[in-house]
Design a protein around this nucleic acid. Structure first.
Length: 425
RNA sequence: GGAGAGAUGGCCGAGUGGACUAAGGCGCACGCCUGGAAAGCGUGUGGGCGGGUAGACCUCGUCCCGUGGGUUCAAAUCCCACUCUCUCCGCCA
């Protein structure tokens, strides 16, 4: 959620940001918000004055009664005023609900360093690491490698649940678990993150705070009792500090969490139908930060480097993309995608997305800090980034380290996590 | 799933319609005292919104005793609904 004051003072800038994102203007109703905001303030001035009168009258009644005087005139007068207060309170409530509805649909304002453009074509490559592996044979896609090795079973995954669910077996399951442990160890021991394991279902308040609701409900699995399966650990972990005021000296707070993630992938029929790239259920190690507003964008630079480090240690070719305004997520002000090289398709694919949401989520979630020098609480900046998506990492390992006989070399850094196994065969 | 109890400020805890501007205690901050400290004494202590201001500070007003409604001139206090927590029983990894 944006600060209503920003909309009040710079409506043109907000509207331009919405245009840059290619969000339709009737959904993000800036003028409607302005109108309702003015109406709200006018109502408040009126109703608060009446309440002031009521409070004074209440004192008078007490005094009169003690003196044995007659209170019937003043009580009669207050009856009418109270009636009017009730009406106005109702109007304020309606107007505030309307403002709230509008505000929840307005996306974050992109940072000034974000390239303006309508889609991913305008993304900018920031850097690249390593080299494409060279093969003496035609590299196979990971689903063929995995099925041949008996470690990926798409058919049975579909039988158990539906398409886009996969059964991992033997070294496949082991590799998945090894990657989770390797990533968690790296981020906790070397990058200073605290490990958490959150609930994987969340309530509507939680999903609204991070921006998944109300706009993107069709992308979520909704369960009984009004609980939703998390599409990323960003949702529960960011909500750890919802409605809290943190001591400034605790910032930056850095969490890392492994969780399964669930996405309906509505509207992506026909895209990436084969393999592990686009699943309804996948594992992810997620980094989340709560930062001082002066540090948000520095922390974003640090976070994308933390994500890259996973691929460096694994030894896999990758690049970092700065997303353009049109490709930016709803809550993000700035976002880097980490893209891994997949040799079978001969292309880079997103394996991590690191975003600084500035105070957009913090305002929705009411996460603040108390400045240590005194003064009013301020909203923190929240950041999140994959470190990394585990299924896509499995795909990248299978494809980048495949041998001509169908076996796959285990990256050295993972071998201790796989009982010393050096080759999957 | 059944039965019961509860939710008040950073924490403990009092409060059965008007003096609640929420007692008292603890904690914390500052000051006095001290060679220094402790004790003691004194002062202070949260958040939201709005007006006065373009903003800082300040100031005025309003709201906040789990949440949302209701009764009343007036609600922490009475009524209704909901949420959460705790205890016991049952079931369960």
């Amino acid at each position: 959620m944006l600060d209503i004051k920003v909309i009040r003072e710079e409506p043109g800038r907000v509207k331009q940001a919405i245009l840059d994102r290619d969000t339709s203007a009737e959904v993000a109703d800036v003028d409607g918000a302005l109108e309702m905001d003015a109406r709200r303030r006018a109502l408040l001035v009126e109703v608060e004055d009446l309440k002031h009168q009521r409070n004074k009258a209440s004192d008078d009644i007490v005094r009169l009664k003690k003196e044995g005087g007659d209170t019937s005139a003043i009580v009669e007068k207050m009856r009418a005023i109270s009636e009017r207060i009730k009406e106005l309170d109702g109007e304020v409530r309606d107007v505030e609900a309307e403002i709230g509805k509008i505000m929840l649909d307005i996306p974050n304002i992109p940072h000034e360093t974000v390239p303006v453009g309508p889609d991913e074509e305008s993304n900018v490559e920031v850097r690249r690491w390593g080299e494409k592996p060279s093969f003496t044979f035609k590299p196979k896609p990971h689903w063929e490698i995995g099925e041949a090795l008996g470690i990926l079973d798409f058919e049975r995954g579909a039988k158990i649940a539906a398409s886009r669910f996969t059964l991992l077996r033997d070294s496949g399951a082991l590799l998945e678990r090894a990657l989770i442990n390797f990533m968690l160890d790296l981020h906790t021991r070397e990058h200073g993150y605290t490990e958490v394991f959150p609930p994987i279902l969340g309530n509507r308040e939680t999903f609204t705070a991070t921006g998944q609701l109300p706009k993107f409900e069709e992308d979520m699995y909704v369960c009984n009792d009004d609980l939703l399966l998390v599409p990323t650990a960003e949702v529960p972990v960011t909500n750890i500090h919802r409605d809290e005021i943190l001591p400034e000296e605790d910032l930056t707070i850095k969490y890392v969490a492994y969780t399964p993630c669930f996405r309906r992938e509505a509207g992506s029929y026909g895209k990436d139908v084969r393999g592990l790239i686009r699943q309804h259920q996948f594992n992810k190690v997620e980094m989340v930060k709560f930062a001082h507003p002066d540090k948000g964008f520095d922390e974003l630079e640090a976070m994308i480097i933390n994500a890259e480090e996973v691929l460096r240690r694994l030894g896999i070719h990758h690049r970092v993309m700065l997303l353009s305004t049109g490709d930016l997520g709803f809550s993000a002000a700035k976002c880097y995608d980490l893209e891994v090289w997949l040799p079978a398709a001969g292309e880079f694919r997103e394996i991590s997305s690191c975003s600084c949401c500035t105070d957009f989520q913090a305002r929705r979630a009411n996460i603040r800090f108390k400045p240590s020098g005194g003064g009013k609480p301020r909203f923190v900046h929240t950041l999140n980034g994959s470190g990394l998506a585990v299924g896509r990492t499995v795909a990248a390992i299978l494809e980048n380290f495949q041998l001509d006989d169908g076996r796959v070399v285990v990256p050295p850094v993972l071998q201790p996590y796989m009982g010393g196994k050096t080759v999957i065969e």
